Amino acid sequence: MMAVNVPDTFIDNAKVMAKGQVTIPKDVRSVLGLDSGSRVTFIVEKGSVRMVNSAVYAMQMLQNEMAGEAERTGLASEEAVNDLVKEVRSEGE
């Protein structure tokens, strides 16, 4: 996909069709990294809606969950993670 120079903040609009379908404007698709077949997630908060790339959103949620899990298990430093990896690798030998 060719890089497009799109500002961080802009306003665009689209028409809602009879079946509730909306064409996502090209610049918005570019910012969100959406291609044909991509999925989007709608986050509704206090009367506003954010639309995000579902794959990116899922990865962010997983990273947040894993970060919390790492802290709970004492893996708060890179050294602790490296030690765990070495331990797991040695068990497989």
Rank of each mutant, 00 (worst) to 15 (best):
M1I: 08
R39D: 09
V49R: 03
E79Q: 15
I43W: 00
M66P: 02
G68N: 09
Q21C: 08
L32W: 00
G20T: 05
E45T: 09
R89K: 15
M66L: 15
A70P: 02
R72C: 07
V52K: 11
G47E: 04
S54H: 04
M2W: 06
E91V: 05
V44T: 08
I24S: 04
Q60T: 07
D35Y: 05
L34D: 01
M66Q: 12
S30D: 12
L34W: 00
M66D: 08
I24H: 01
S30I: 05
V4P: 02
M17H: 12
D12G: 08
P7C: 01
I43L: 11
N5Q: 13
R72S: 13
P25C: 04
E71S: 12
S77C: 06
G74N: 07
L32S: 06
S54T: 11
K19N: 15
G20C: 06
V49S: 01
V44F: 01
D12I: 02
D12L: 05
G74K: 04
M59C: 02
Q63C: 08
G74R: 04
Q21H: 11
D27F: 03
D27V: 07
M61H: 06
D35Q: 11
V81D: 06
Y57S: 09
S90A: 14
L62D: 09
K86Y: 03
E93S: 11
A55S: 12
M1S: 14
K19Y: 07
A18P: 15
R72A: 14
K26D: 13
G37N: 07
S38M: 03
P7A: 07
R50C: 04
V40C: 06
L62P: 00
A80M: 09
M1L: 08
L75G: 10
N5R: 13
T23L: 13
L84C: 05
Q21E: 15
Y57P: 01
F10K: 07
E65H: 10
P7Y: 01
A76M: 11
A67G: 08
V56Y: 04
S38N: 03
V4E: 14
F10C: 05
L62T: 10
D8I: 04
M51E: 04
M2A: 15
D83I: 07
E69I: 12
N13Q: 13
K15R: 14
A67N: 13
A58Y: 00
V31R: 15
P25F: 02
S48E: 09
A80W: 00
G74T: 05
E93H: 08
D35G: 11
E79F: 05
S77G: 07
S36N: 12
S30W: 02
V28R: 04
V31Y: 01
A58I: 05
D35N: 14
V4W: 05
